[in-house]
Amino acid sequence: MNAHAPIRIAIGHVDDIPREGSRVVRAGIMEIAVFRTTTDEFYAIDNRCPHRGGPLSEGIVHGGFVTCPLHNWVISLKTGKAQGADEGCVRTIAVTVDAEGRVSLDLPANLAAAVAA
């Protein structure tokens, strides 16, 4: 098996995630926040704010962004980059939704390895 090929893991159904909301996927010591926007786009990022580790899944979702609940950093869901004057970036994880509405994450192999550790 290619060590760098991501591993696709099903996590649930689109209806499980509220619009303008987010759910958490626990993967060992890691937490991933999966977001759904008003326009039904799905994004997944590490559930740790680049500032001081705030749980981004708890933030207010607006457009393609989430505002961290602890100190209001605004993070792009698409790129994982902090907006405005703040500097920092979180890992993004590819999300796929199939025809039946099943949502899966493409976990990078190294992350999958970390999870396994």
Binding site: R23, R26, G28, V34, V115
Partner: peptide
Amino acid sequence: PLATIQPM
């Protein structure tokens, strides 16, 4: 949580 991915 939406899902808990088992290490296995």
